[in-house]
Amino acid sequence: MSDQQLQGRDLEGKIALVTGGTKGIGKAITARLLSAGATVVVTARNEPEEVDNSYHFIAADLSKADEVAKVATEISNKFGGVDILINNMGANTFPGGGFSALNDEHWYQALEVNLLSSVRLDRALLPKMLEKKSGVIIHISSTSGQFPIWESTMAYSAAKSALNTYSKSLADEAGPHGIRVNTVSPGLTKTEAMSSFLTDLAGQAGITFEEMTQKLFDRVGGVPLGRMAEPEETAELVYFLVSPKGSYITGANYFIDGGNFPVVK
């Protein structure tokens, strides 16, 4: 096998877990890691619409502590642990309208889904990485974590901001033991979740989907590249960070937003 072919399969022998890996960015990450030779475990709340035998699937709602424990136990029994952990699970399914539209339950749910699911899964799977003195953890956050839109992402943004801080702290703790931890913060991305989000907002505002899409672009100050990201573009960044090519990168938060973010990061 040529050096070029080996580089294309540089995750051979690695076990990777991708949460929320059946749709959107998670699905694209799963495909990219598989193409690089990794053995991939995927979790999601529901079975994928189409059976895919290229990865091992575990149905789990990771916003619940006992479901996280179930996933960790199955992975330990079947694979002995993971080398790569992609905490992609997250959702912005909370009411828009600002502080008065959000009750305690909405805030608890935002934190469970967007922060504590990752915290618990890291806590369950990191010890095996520490034993081997190697491993990579990626937290999929959002530009919303530093650029909140009060009308529609208040609880989600607060939870993602907390995830960013936690991720940096974990990187500092785990780095001396050979574990790299990074964050990837996508901006506007063309996914099923984004389509549903815009459809709901358009319905609430009484305007078309296209009009709401333009309003969102305007609200975030525009995107210099003039379009949403494709999930595969974020997946390529994630692959780079978990591959040997990213071996000296830890504690970073990478924004992939088409130039949207309005300040120097």
Rank of each mutant, 00 (worst) to 15 (best):
S2C: 10
D3L: 15
D3N: 06
Q5C: 06
G8F: 00
E12A: 12
A16N: 04
A16M: 07
A16H: 08
G24L: 00
G24K: 01
I25W: 01
A28H: 01
A31I: 04
A31G: 09
S35Q: 10
S35P: 05
A38S: 09
P48M: 11
V51W: 08
D52Y: 06
A59R: 08
L62Q: 03
S63P: 09
K64P: 06
D66K: 08
E67I: 08
T73N: 15
S76H: 14
S76V: 07
K78T: 12
K78G: 03
G81S: 15
V82M: 14
D83K: 01
N87Y: 05
N88L: 07
M89H: 07
T93C: 11
P95F: 02
G98Q: 11
G98D: 15
G98W: 01
F99L: 15
N103S: 06
D104K: 13
D104T: 11
E105Y: 08
H106R: 09
W107Y: 00
Y108R: 15
L116T: 02
L116K: 01
A124S: 13
K128Y: 08
L130A: 11
E131Y: 03
S134Q: 12
S142G: 12
G145H: 00
Q146M: 10
F147Y: 11
S152Q: 04
M154I: 08
M154C: 13
A155I: 03
A155E: 03
T165V: 11
Y166C: 05
K168N: 06
S169G: 15
A174L: 14
H177R: 15
G178Q: 08
T183H: 03
S185K: 04
S195M: 09
S196V: 09
L198D: 11
L201N: 09
L201A: 14
L201R: 05
A202W: 02
G203P: 06
G206A: 10
K215E: 15
F217L: 10
F217D: 11
D218A: 14
V220I: 14
V223T: 06
T234D: 04
Y239P: 02
F240I: 08
F240V: 07
L241Q: 02
P244C: 13
I249E: 01
Y254I: 13
D257C: 05
V263L: 15
